[in-house]
Design a protein around this nucleic acid. Structure first.
Length: 294
DNA sequence: AAGAACTCCTGTTGGC
DNA sequence: TGCCAACAGGAGTTCT
């Protein structure tokens, strides 16, 4: 579920609780999520310090003192919940801070030296946690082929054009592919395409001229991708169904969707009378306005 | 090599 | 009310 803005919001919530802290206990309640947990997972983390917590694409990464990195992905339904150190069980035995999720899907709990706990809950178990030597991080198979961070300098129209040149996939699929741009998912691709006035059904190669130079469409897309992601981060992400920040807060960017989830509702472009359409591309819903997006 | 289909898993929703 | 199909912020694997 979470795309870049949601993962970034989770990172911001977890960072003050985890950065620089020693993990004193790790409870792992099942052998695997999407992939098996790292071998000797608890033994490799207990007693060790988290040096920093950062985000790359939709991954959360913790550098662990001693030379390993923990790579975490939330999949479709993953959620982290913090229970602060000073919260206490009430008379009924339940915690003041409930995780708000079905506890049968609480798969991993980290306890820090401060007494805070961070629990990972994931009903669908499409998320995962893997470890790799930090020195080999960049060449890890999950990391090495990722495209540029959309909010950094490496994403520019020329990059999109060079990736898109000669590609027959449609624009929607091109932008969903993490090798081309990192961090976008179904929601923000739909929203960025709407803002750029580009049809999701267009062929990806429309971003490049025959010379390989970027078209105006590529320029517009870079701008709208950045805009929509930045605004969503400011709003704390989008909360539909499962997603919450680590402190339990709901994001509110879903109220700003122009097209996502709005099938049959009027296009928000002033003067446009068209209704938002839903089509299926590569098995996923795409929402767009057939008038404003060409 | 690129692209499409299939797969993992549980929960929720809407139609009959 | 129940039953069943469709769908959900992802992406690796396998096939053509």
């Amino acid at each position: 579920m979470p795309e870049l803005p949601e993962v970034e919001t989770v990172r911001a919530g977890l960072a003050p609780v985890l950065t620089g802290k020693r993990i004193v206990r790790l409870e792992q309640r099942r052998p695997n999520l999407r992939f098996p947990f790292p071998a000797n997972f608890a033994r490799r983390l207990e007693g060790r310090r988290i040096e920093n917590l950062y985000r790359r694409s939709k991954y959360l990464i913790a550098n662990i003192k001693g030379g390993e990195s923990l790579i975490m992905h939330l999949g479709m339904s993953g959620r982290f919940t913090i229970v602060p150190a000073d919260s206490e069980a009430d008379a009924s035995g339940s915690f003041t801070f409930s995780t708000g999720a079905n506890p049968k899907h609480d798969h991993v709990t980290f306890r820090t030296e401060d007494g805070a706990t961070v629990t990972y809950n994931d009903p669908r178990r499409f998320g995962f946690m893997v470890m790799t030597p930090t020195a080999e991080f960049d060449s890890h198979p999950l990391i090495r082929d990722l495209g540029p961070e959309p909010l950094g300098n490496a994403l520019h129209a020329g990059h999109l054009a060079s990736r898109a040149l000669g590609r027959k996939a449609d624009l929607k699929a091109f932008l969903m592919d993490q090798k081309n741009v990192a961090g976008l998912g179904n929601i923000y691709v739909c929203e960025a395409l709407y803002r750029a006035g580009l049809s999701p059904k267009r062929v990806a190669s429309c971003l490049a001229k025959k010379s390989g130079a970027p078209t105006g469409r590529a320029e517009r897309l870079v701008t709208t991708i950045r805009e929509v992601l930045s605004e969503a981060i400011k709003a704390g992400g989008s909360s539909l169904r499962d997603y919450r920040a680590a402190d339990g807060a709901l994001g509110y960017f879903q109220h700003s969707f122009a097209v996502y989830g709005r099938e049959g509702e009027p296009c928000r472009t002033p003067g446009c009378t068209r209704k938002v359409q839903r089509i299926v591309q590569a098995g996923r819903s795409t929402f767009y306005c057939g008038t404003c997006q060409r």
